[in-house]
Simulated assay, not measured.
Amino acid sequence: MDEKIFELSFEIISFAGNAKSIAFDAISKAKAGEIEKARELLKESKEEVNKAHRCQTSLIQKEACGEKVEMSVVLIHAQDHLMNTMNFQMLAEEIIDLYERIDNK
């Protein structure tokens, strides 16, 4: 496997993992009634996902320029991890909204 692809794959995994962890913390803050802190954490989580996207984009650009991007279990895992994190962020945003709604009643 190309070393650069391997490195980018692990960067995607790392950034996505950080993002998911931060989003989970955001839910915990919302549950504790700290809605503003929860929204700040969710914003931070999205910034981490953007870093993962930049890695992903560099892989897409390589392929678009005609370079062969070798598929591997690590790259597939990285993509899966990123997509799951993005879904988790969307759910976290909904959960935070619900906690805010409950707190305002």
Score class of each variant (00 low, 15 high):
Arg39Leu: 09
Ile5Gln: 07
Glu48Gln: 03
Asp103Ile: 11
Asn18Ala: 03
Asp97Ala: 14
Glu63Val: 04
Phe15Ile: 00
Ile12Asp: 05
His77Gln: 01
Ser28Arg: 14
Glu34Ser: 14
Val69Tyr: 05
Asp103Asn: 14
Ala92Thr: 09
Glu48Asp: 03
Gln61Asn: 12
Gln56Cys: 00
Arg101His: 12
Ala78Gly: 08
Leu82His: 01
Met86Phe: 06
Asn18Trp: 00
Gly33Tyr: 11
Ile102Trp: 04
Glu63Ile: 05
Lys62Phe: 13
Lys37Asn: 11
Lys105His: 06
Ala38Cys: 12
Ile12Val: 13
Leu59His: 02
Gln61Val: 15
Cys65His: 14
Ala78Arg: 10
Ala52Trp: 01
Asp80Arg: 03
Tyr99Gln: 09
Ile5Cys: 03
Ser21Glu: 08
Ala64Tyr: 00
Met83Asn: 09
Ala52Gln: 04
Cys55Ser: 15
Lys31Asp: 15
Leu98Glu: 03
Ala92Trp: 01
Glu36Val: 13
Gly17Tyr: 01
Leu41Asp: 08
Ala64Gly: 07
Met83His: 05
Met90Lys: 13
Asp97Gly: 10
Ser58Ala: 11
Asn84Gln: 04
Leu8Arg: 14
Glu63Leu: 07
Ser14Thr: 08
Gly33Val: 13
Ser72Ile: 02
Phe6Ser: 11
Glu48Phe: 02
Ala19Trp: 08
Leu98Ser: 05
Glu7Pro: 00
Gln79Cys: 06
Ile22Leu: 11
Glu36Met: 09
His53Val: 06
Gly17Phe: 05
Ser58Asn: 12
Val74Pro: 00
Phe6Val: 11
Gly33Thr: 12
Lys68Arg: 14
Asp103Arg: 15
Ala32Val: 01
Ala32Lys: 15
His53Ile: 09
Lys37Tyr: 04
Ile22His: 09
